[in-house]
Simulated scan of single mutants.
Amino acid sequence: MRVVELEARHVRVALRRKVTHASHVRTDTDNVVVRCKLSDGSTGYGEGVPRDYVTGETLASALDLLNRSDLAKQLDADVDDFVQAVHLAEKLSLATVPGDDRGIGGNAARCAVELAVLDAFGRAFGEPLTKVTELVAPELYRFRDRVQYSGVIGNPRGWKKRLYPLVYRLAGFSQVKVKVGIEGQDDVTRLKLMRRWLGRKIDVRIDANEAWAPTEVAARIQELEPFGITSVEQPVRHEDVACLASVRKQIGTLVMLDESLCGPVDAERAVQGGWCDLFNLRLSKCGGFIPTLRLAQFAKSHGLGYQLGCQVGETAILSAAGRHFATSVADLRYTEGSYDRHLVSEALGTEDLTFRRNGSAPALVGCGLGFQVDPVRLDRVTQRKESLLG
């Protein structure tokens, strides 16, 4: 069995509400969706979310990179079982991006291809994506039939400042992430209000999205610690990340890297520099399912924790991949994702993968990604198609 077709699409999906954080304001999302067809007719889909402020990718650069990467040659192989398919997917590499010393300039594009290949072969050989964890990282593998996702509070206005945390509390969420560092907002006042309406039992963490300068970051975190925060995510710009080694000595809160943790080079530098306690692992920014597993292995071997994150604008394709990761990888500190119908106008699936009342969602036990892409919905949001193979 072999890959006979590979197609990349630019899809644009409107968001149901404006999303604001310290790095960006977004009302829609431009994603890469890849379709992979095998010689037996099995078809798989993958997705990547290129963000120039995360991996340096844009939609245009991602598509250009896919066209320059000679994927037809890399995928020119007969595959006899799912183990071989996983090896084939792990070996996928894209063309070099000039000046990319971190090795992350094609991660979203690679994620889309890798997931499409794994989905297609998973369907052909009757294996779910959770099997990839068992094969690649058996020491991390622990299957769970359900997962509980975190809530997220961005920049609600007026009465919604009270409504959103109260809804999470009444719905039974156990974890909530609050965005901080947003221009024009008083974080102390906001977090005090959020904690009041969330109650004391919910685990609250904060995400600054690179908002603070090295000279102020320790003080900013210290003034929020009385509200019982359990971690602070990416408090400074990537260019300033080395300052976190000294900041960690001044605060009592765990530091998580996100924009500064996109690949193995980042991970090695973070450990050597003592910059963090936790990695935020997101499939798209980390280059796919298997590279993200490798980063989890690296974190665990160096005594660091990790969470599964997601990116604004993921459709059901990445939601499904994230569900497989979340239900098969042990020791995730926090879990984010599956916001589908709460955030995107077209989730692209034939079924709703959105988490339920308390953030809970079941494992996907079908083959490949375990759900079906709706071709009509996909066509509706497609802006452009390009053939990469076949």
Rank of each mutant, 00 (worst) to 15 (best):
G184K: 09
G154P: 05
E259D: 14
A218R: 12
R51W: 15
G252T: 04
S284I: 00
S360F: 01
I251E: 15
N280H: 01
R26N: 08
Q250R: 12
F227N: 07
G252I: 01
T327H: 00
Y339S: 06
L281Y: 08
L332R: 08
C276D: 09
T253H: 03
F371C: 03
L343A: 06
S338A: 14
L388E: 03
C36G: 02
D119G: 13
I290G: 14
K160V: 06
I229S: 03
G154F: 13
L308N: 04
I317V: 14
L88T: 03
L170R: 15
R169W: 11
K177R: 11
D80L: 14
V86H: 08
D78I: 01
D80W: 14
K249I: 03
K161R: 15
K285T: 15
T315N: 10
F82R: 11
L59E: 14
T43Q: 14
G370H: 09
L166Q: 12
E259I: 12
P226V: 06
L278N: 07
E223A: 01
H21S: 14
T55F: 01
T43V: 15
K249Y: 01
R380S: 15
W275D: 06
V113N: 03
R68C: 05
G305V: 09
R323Q: 09
Y45W: 15
A8S: 07
K91H: 10
V34I: 08
G181D: 02
M194I: 11
A316C: 09
G303R: 03
V241Y: 08
T133F: 05
R237W: 00
L88R: 12
F355Q: 11
Q383V: 15
F371R: 15
S39I: 05
L389I: 11
D101T: 09
A8W: 00
A124L: 02
D374V: 03
G181C: 11
G313E: 03
G172L: 14
Q84T: 10
P98C: 03
I229D: 05
E386R: 08
G158F: 06
L140G: 06
G228A: 05
T354Y: 09
A116F: 05
G99Y: 12
G305M: 01
A120S: 05
M256H: 13
L388D: 02
V11Y: 09
